[in-house]
Design a protein around this nucleic acid. Sequence first.
DNA 1: GACGAAACTGTCGGTAGTGACAGTTCCGGA
DNA 2: TCCGGAACTGTCACTACCGACAGTTTCGTC
Lengths: 236, 236
Amino acid sequence: MLEILECGGCIEPAHFFTLMRRTFRIAHLLYLEAEPYPDELKICRLHHTFGAYAAELYLTRGLYRIDPILKLALGGVRPVEWTTARHRFPECEPLFKTAEEIGLSSEGVALPLPSPAGRMALLAINVNMSAAEWSIYRRNHLRDFQLAANLFHAGMLENAAMTGGLNTREMRLTGRETEVLTWSAAGKSYWEIATILGISERTVRFFMTNARRKLNVVSNTQAVAQAVRHALIPTV
Amino acid sequence: MLEILECGGCIEPAHFFTLMRRTFRIAHLLYLEAEPYPDELKICRLHHTFGAYAAELYLTRGLYRIDPILKLALGGVRPVEWTTARHRFPECEPLFKTAEEIGLSSEGVALPLPSPAGRMALLAINVNMSAAEWSIYRRNHLRDFQLAANLFHAGMLENAAMTGGLNTREMRLTGRETEVLTWSAAGKSYWEIATILGISERTVRFFMTNARRKLNVVSNTQAVAQAVRHALIPTV
DNA sequence: GACGAAACTGTCGGTAGTGACAGTTCCGGA
DNA sequence: TCCGGAACTGTCACTACCGACAGTTTCGTC
């Protein structure tokens, strides 16, 4: 199975999920790719096997706001054990209560996945077994999950790069736009940037305006925040 | 071994490398964390077992500029096979020639690792076996390498977050300072932030001024850039 | 040669940010 | 009890930013 993934043969989420469930004792899978924003999370891609009803409950009850797995997996690097997350964040009980209501297990693990340009992704794996069983199973197969997740994610990213680069094309900053943003992030004023780059102050403003438009923000401050978050400008 | 890593018991690179070489048939390891710049690469952390002579050759001969493994692993998600990279980039022959000169094998794999804030990292694994042997060995143990790499990387990042507390102590922001910075990073004006927080505009400016002073910067834009970079304000 | 993308420039009027002046209130620790 | 830190507020003058107006030039690709 891992060979199939490595050769890029599996870019269809449904196919990958089926393969995973057939190969391992997995109940459900969820793949999420998102962009972190100041006040929310912009979901770029979402595939899962939990079904429409579970998804509806998750959304209508606002469970995504308390989901500790999202916070931990999208912010970190280490695999996130569901039960560990549950114990560390008591306020997320409604989430697990809801899961139990509709007959979903609370055992599982979420694997953070690397993404370029500040995006984050995760593959969550839900199993239907006792805690003891899961502990052993996890020890044996976490490495398989991790590699499979990485390869699948790589396939998804490559596929996205192939088919729809519209996001990347829109958001791509030109050389000058990157430069003025970088200097602005360094605390320079328009006049200073103009002097540094040897161009007129008006031109600096022109580049900054274009950068703001491309980043879809309303102020230089917000533009710089976005640029730093998405690694569009170098860190000093 | 993987359990040791998962419990965060191995944060010393030398220790991890020894453990890896003892557990697997690995000749050399290299861990690199870097920040991608438009035209160059800023190395944040580098640990390896290739020895000083190899490192010197690598630097003096400028091999880092043609190294395809750096490009592929720091830009992608998929594990990079050394021989594949070699065939795809004929201009990197000097690199492998140099490796052979000093008795290093050309078989290996580089694993990209996720990092927050736009940084990239990789763990390169070099083995001393024939192509056929490596092919089989790799099939069996790539998943182990991937998981071990991820866990080690997680440990490194967590450790960095711990020890880098000297900045945090000096730069510690109060609750309100963090709030106003967060809203400013979201593109809100003083008036808007004042309305949101239910305080006067003057007070927002007061907090912002304090934040600027603590961060030792001259503008709100620079303060937000610093705050985002140092993760002083929430990303999500 | 046409075309688009990037780099570049000028002016005006309004709004937002910045520093410096000078305060009050509340709370927890020495 | 005193003290420091955090939260909070007012006013003034200056500077920086920002949107909308309307352009030129240069470069590489088709």
